[in-house]
Design a protein around this nucleic acid. Structure first.
Length: 301
DNA sequence: AAATGGTGCAACCGCCCTCCG
DNA sequence: CCGGAGGGCGGTTGCACCATT
């Protein structure tokens, strides 16, 4: 019997009928007791597989098929810089998004960046292969989210890649600090944890401070070292091999549809050139006006 | 039109934690 | 206290689709 059961475990793409069974189970018992789905003989899937399917695809109010809006990108970038690869935690700030979504988004982004850096003549530290398959093989500084997150949106990356290797865009840390980043409107983030954000008002522009070591935050030794060096102009010069002069002092940023509006957010999913899919275009001048509002703690929502 | 490469996404794997008997 | 089961989570893989050559 055990052997029989083992052989019966199904893998791979889910069929509609399986989805229906899973949905019915959740309707009856709620999103729990995943393993009982198999033990009852309802599905030949592992409990894990069922849970994953529910969480990633069948759960209500998912924004499946929707490209990340500019604001969502911004949230991910900020939070990744703050707390690292805690995708599930980051996903809690993005209604309708799953940890898998966030993870995939970030992974795609990392791949793009790696490719751009290679094209721009900044070779990976220990490999000369065309394409790095694992992000663990990327240059170490790519694992430090802060800078690359600030320097590249998906649209900026394309511009950057075409202007590689010449400018001083990153030479001055102050320039970076003064970049008019579109803000994450923390007050609108469900589950917002004020302890995770340390924004300092700089001419009304919020800027995510370099994460300070916190008891519950774990950075790799490399990250610790690199974070410690972020104020080092020489370190910045390393990144300065990437050029985006056209962004210059008046770098423009785009704002996507309002965050947490599944309808409008979903309308921004096409790759229409008229519809830039990214941050950093046409930044409204008053967009930072409401940043420093008090933020609800997770317990308040 | 075919080949190639990039991208996004669904799903699996393995590790870890928590809970419960 | 211990061990097993269940579940959560981050990392990885495989594949389909699309754009480019």
């Amino acid at each position: 019997m055990e052997g029989f059961k083992k052989e019966e475990i199904r893998k791979g793409p889910w069929k509609e009928e399986e989805d229906e069974v899973l949905i019915n189970h959740v309707k009856k018992y709620g999103p729990r007791d995943w393993s009982s789905i198999r033990s009852k003989g309802l599905l030949h899937r592992t409990g894990k597989s069922c849970r994953l399917r529910w969480v990633n695809k069948l759960r209500p109010n998912l924004k499946s098929g929707c490209k990340f809006s500019a604001e969502e990108e911004r949230v991910v970038i900020d939070l990744q810089a703050e707390i690292g690869n805690k995708w599930a935690r980051i996903a809690t700030y993005l209604p309708g998004r799953t940890d898998n979504d966030v993870k995939n988004f970030w992974s795609s982004r990392q791949k793009r960046l790696a490719r751009i850096l290679q094209a721009s003549g900044t070779p990976p530290s220990s490999s000369n292969s065309k394409q790095q398959k694992s992000k663990n093989k990327y240059p170490v500084f790519l694992d430090v989210p802060t800078f690359e997150a600030l320097m590249f949106s998906s649209s900026m990356e394309e511009e950057v890649s075409s202007k590689a290797c010449s400018s001083s865009y990153l030479e001055n840390p102050e320039q970076i600090r003064m970049m008019p980043l579109p803000p994450v409107v923390k007050s609108e983030l469900p589950g917002y944890d004020a302890n995770l954000f340390q924004y300092e008002p700089m001419s009304g522009i919020p800027f995510p401070q370099i994460p300070q070591p916190q008891p519950d935050l774990v950075f790799s030794p490399e990250s610790h070292e690199l974070l410690a060096r972020l104020d080092d102009p020489y370190f910045l010069n390393v990144l300065g091999t990437i050029d985006a002069p056209e962004l210059g002092d008046t770098a423009q940023f785009s704002l996507g549809p309002p965050l947490f509006d599944p309808v409008t957010s979903c309308m921004n999913t096409s790759r229409d050139a008229k519809n830039p899919d990214t941050l950093f275009d046409e930044l409204p001048p008053d967009m930072f006006d409401h940043i420093d509002q008090p933020l609800p703690s997770p317990s308040e929502w």
